[in-house]
Amino acid sequence: MKRTTASHLPKMRKQNLIVDELPDEVLVYDLDRHKAHCLNHTAALVWRRCDGKTGPKEIARRVQSELDQPFNEDLVWLALRQLNKIHLLAEPIVLPSQLAGMSRRRMIRALGIAATVPLVISIVAPTAEAAATCIPHNGTCPAGGLPCCAPFNCDLSKNQCK
């Protein structure tokens, strides 16, 4: 069931991504889709081993030796499913039939695993408004309730601070 062919070997996407490595997690910003994601340590380990040449079984073995904890092929598939969904793989992968239609929650329940679960969470993409005091001249408005910097006002016909 988990046999993979060469065309199904997962490969990590490298283009148009901003990757920030933190001690316990990896943050990824997708410049194409303007989406931000947070990969936990395990998911990041799986992702980094997706070189297009290694199959899930071998990835599981390598991750296990790195984590020094049991880590099987099913967990790799769980990670790949999530990575695939958020477009962090260069090419879409074909999931094993019994995992394809399952939700992530059901998958985790079915696998019966608590520790070392690879998890990917999407975070609200960072915005300038989070830090800006006001929108400068010619900036797009209205933006997140932020006012235009004095003396400009939001020109609603052009959606710009004029």
């Binding site: 901003i18 920030d20 933190l22 943050l27 931000a36 993409a125 960072p126 915005t127 989070a130 830090a131």
Partner: peptide, 16 residues
Amino acid sequence: HEAYRKFRLSALIHER
């Protein structure tokens, strides 16, 4: 923590 993650990514984008 979520805000911190956002700011990290935002800073990376800004730096570029």
